[in-house]
């Protein structure tokens, strides 16, 4: 599903160049649930952003679902993101003046899905994350866990190939974190490929594979026994 070869990325900070990713080689198969771990500054978020086409690599190859991702202009990147990727952010990034339903509808709007179909689909996905009673509520009227579930529904609504989660539980307490991880696991159970960036071991252990990053290189890549989030409750 994801093939990455020799990926490099540097940032310019003033006169100095900060080499963040120093040659990443890394493949993800369909249906995997991979945790990308590392301390802050290890390059894990940068890697996720490049996979998510929110950022571009300086060097290296990146293939997503057999499509080579290169020479991205913003328009192309937007279309790929819309078709292939679903994002879950630490800070939810819901549009605050839109209701839960409208937020979930938004990726479908950019896919030019007709309004009625959009609403049906969005309602369906909100039901899937257990928010049927909250579809008309604004983000400000929802709890953190509910907001993240709206964000998950939004990421799922576009029916992406890969779900990318950047510290999805970073802003949540442990009970809510478990609920959210349970949801993500269920989505993975249905066969969706999922990448989770986290620095928490608990969260990483709920995935099926852990990739350890340090100073821009992968230092460890292992398959783990998945811990079901339900078990913690």
């Amino acid at each position: 599903m994801i093939k990455i070869k020799g990926l490099h990325k540097s940032y310019r900070i003033g006169k100095n160049s900060l080499h963040v990713l120093k040659g990443i080689n890394f493949n993800v198969e369909e249906g995997e649930m991979v945790a990308i771990m590392g301390s802050s500054g290890s390059g894990k978020s940068t890697l996720l952003n490049i996979i998510g086409m929110l950022d571009v690599a300086d060097e290296g190859e990146y293939t997503l679902d057999n499509i080579e991702i290169k020479d991205l202009d913003e328009t192309k990147a937007a279309k790929y993101r819309n078709r292939f990727l679903g994002f879950i952010f630490q800070s939810f990034n819901l549009i605050n003046y839109k209701t839960a339903l409208e937020n979930v509808e938004l990726p479908l709007y950019y896919q030019k899905v007709p309004r009625k179909e959009r609403q049906e689909k969005a309602t369906q996905y909100l039901a899937k994350v257990g928010l049927t009673d909250w579809i008309k509520h604004l983000p400000s009227e929802l709890s953190g866990g509910q907001k993240q579930r709206v964000a998950i529904a939004r990421a799922m609504a576009a029916e992406p190939k890969v779900l990318l989660a950047d510290e999805p539980t970073g802003a949540l307490d442990s009970t809510t974190s478990n609920e959210v991880m349970q949801l993500i696991q269920e989505i993975n159970d249905e066969g969706k490929t999922i990448l989770v960036v986290t620095h928490e071991n608990d969260i990483a252990n709920m995935c099926k594979r852990i990739v350890q990053l340090k100073d821009g290189v992968i230092i460890e890549d292992k398959i783990v026994e998945q811990v079901r989030a339900l078990a913690h409750v």
């Binding site: 913003e74 279309k79 993101r81 078709r83 549009i95 896919q111 576009a158």
Partner: peptide, 16 residues
């Protein structure tokens, strides 16, 4: 700006 970033992340083209 942030809202526009969110929109772009979920598939809005610069033109849109």
């Amino acid at each position: 700006t942030k809202e526009l970033g969110v929109r772009k992340a979920i598939g809005a083209t610069p033109r849109a």
